[in-house]
Deep mutational scan, measured.
Amino acid sequence: SQQIATAKDKYEWLVSRIVKNHNENWLSVSRKMQASPEYQDYVYLEGTQKAKKLFLQHIHRLK
């Protein structure tokens, strides 16, 4: 749906803004993002596993 696509774009923007180093780990980054509406919306719509998967894809691109 359009809502999910929009939430994903915003979440990816948030991840790219916060995660600048491929050594970052999911636990510390997800804690930093918990207060962000972009993170909350995406997790609400798609779940934590998908959020983690996108985070890991971003990390992989930074290597």
Results as ranks from 00 to 15, higher is better:
Ser30Cys: 10
Pro37Ile: 12
Asn25Phe: 00
Ala51Met: 02
Leu62Ile: 08
Asn21Pro: 04
Ala7Gln: 00
Ala35Thr: 13
Trp13Tyr: 13
Asn21Phe: 14
Lys50Ser: 12
Gln3Arg: 10
Tyr42Asn: 06
Val43Thr: 07
Gln3Gly: 11
His60Arg: 09
Tyr42Gln: 04
Lys63Phe: 04
Gln49Thr: 13
Tyr39His: 00
Asn23Thr: 12
Gln57His: 07
Glu46Lys: 05
Leu45Ala: 07
His60Pro: 00
Arg31Gln: 14
Arg31Ile: 05
Ala35Glu: 14
Tyr39Ile: 03
Leu54Ile: 14
Trp13Gly: 15
Tyr39Pro: 00
Leu56Asp: 15
Ile18Leu: 13
Ser30Leu: 12
Pro37Gln: 13
Ser30Ala: 09
Glu38Leu: 09
Lys8Gln: 10
Pro37Thr: 13
Gln2Lys: 11
His60Phe: 07
Glu46Cys: 13
Asp41Thr: 12
Tyr39Phe: 11
Asp9Glu: 15
Lys8Thr: 10
Arg17Cys: 10
Lys10Arg: 14
Ser30Gly: 03
Tyr44Gln: 15
Ala7Leu: 07
Asn25Glu: 13
Lys63Gly: 06
Asn23Arg: 11
His60Trp: 07
Ile18Lys: 05
Glu38Asp: 09
Ile59Val: 12
Ile4Gln: 05
Leu45Arg: 07
Leu62Pro: 01
Lys50Met: 13
Trp13Cys: 15
Leu27Phe: 11
Asn25Asp: 14
Met33Phe: 05
Ser16His: 12
Glu12Ile: 14
Asn23Ala: 06
Val15Glu: 00
Ala35Gly: 14
Gln3Val: 10
Lys53Asn: 11
Val43His: 00
Gln49Gly: 13
Ile18Phe: 03
Glu46Gln: 12
Ala51Cys: 01
Val29Cys: 10
Lys32Trp: 03
Trp13His: 15
Gln40Arg: 13
Gly47Tyr: 02
Arg31Pro: 05
Arg61Ser: 11
Thr6Phe: 12
Lys10Ser: 05
Ser28Asn: 15
His60Lys: 15
Leu56Trp: 09
Leu27Glu: 15
Arg31Met: 09
Ile59Cys: 13
Gln40Thr: 08
Thr48Leu: 12
Tyr44Pro: 03
His22Trp: 12
Val43Tyr: 04
Gln34Trp: 08
Glu46Ile: 00
Val29Gly: 03
Thr6Ser: 13
Thr48Asn: 12
Asn21Gln: 08
Tyr11Phe: 11
Ser30Ile: 08
Thr48Met: 13
Lys52Leu: 01
Leu56Met: 10
Val19Pro: 00
Lys50Thr: 08
Thr48Val: 14
Asn23Ile: 06
Phe55Pro: 06
Gln34Phe: 05
Lys50Pro: 04
Asn23Lys: 13
Tyr39Leu: 02
Glu38Ile: 14
Gln40Gly: 04
Trp13Met: 15
Glu46Trp: 01
Gln2Ala: 08
Pro37Tyr: 03
Leu54Arg: 04
Ala5Asp: 10
Ile18Pro: 01
Gln2Ser: 10
Gln49Trp: 06
Trp26Arg: 02
Gln57Ile: 05
Thr6Arg: 12
Ser28Leu: 07
Lys20Met: 06
Thr6Trp: 07
Glu12Ser: 06
Ile4Ser: 09
Lys10His: 07
Gly47Glu: 02
Arg61Gly: 07
Ser1Gln: 15
Ser16Glu: 11
Ile59Phe: 01
Ser36Asp: 04
Gln49Met: 12
Tyr39Ser: 03
Lys32Gln: 10
Ser16Thr: 11
Leu54Asn: 08
Ser30Glu: 12
Arg31Ser: 11
Pro37Glu: 08
Thr6Gln: 11
Lys53Ala: 14
Lys10Trp: 06
Ser36Ala: 14
Glu12Thr: 11
Leu45Cys: 07
Met33Trp: 00
Gln34Pro: 03
Lys63Trp: 09
Leu56Ala: 09
Val29Asn: 02
Arg17Glu: 11
Lys10Tyr: 00
Asn23Asp: 13
Met33Arg: 02
Gln57Ser: 10
Val19Gln: 04
Ser1Val: 10
Leu56Asn: 05
Lys52Ile: 03
Gly47Phe: 00
Ala35Lys: 13
Val29Phe: 15
Glu46Arg: 04
Lys52Pro: 04
Leu27Gln: 15
His60Val: 10
Ala35Trp: 09
Ser16Trp: 08
His58Trp: 08
Thr48Tyr: 15
Leu45Pro: 03
Gln57Ala: 13
Asn21Glu: 06
Val19Tyr: 01
Trp26Tyr: 00
Val19Ser: 03
Val19Phe: 02
Ser1Ala: 12
Leu14Ile: 00
Gly47Arg: 06
Glu38Arg: 01
Gln49His: 10
Ser16Gln: 14
Ala7Ile: 09
Ser1Thr: 12
Ser16Arg: 14
Gln40Trp: 13
Arg31Leu: 09
Lys50Gln: 12
Ala5Thr: 12
Glu12Phe: 05
His22Ala: 14
Ser28Gly: 06
Ala7Asn: 00
Asp41Ser: 11
Pro37Cys: 08
Thr48Arg: 11
Ile18Ala: 02
Asn23Tyr: 12
Tyr42Ile: 00
Leu56His: 04
His58Leu: 06
Ala35Ser: 14
Leu45Phe: 08
Arg17Asn: 11
Val15Pro: 02
Lys53Leu: 13
Lys50Asp: 01
Ser28Phe: 07
Lys8Ser: 06
Arg17Val: 08
Ala5Asn: 13
Val15Phe: 02
Gln49Cys: 10
Val19His: 00
Leu27Thr: 14
Ser36Thr: 12
Val19Lys: 04
Ser30Asn: 07
Met33Leu: 12
Leu45Ser: 07
Trp13Asn: 15
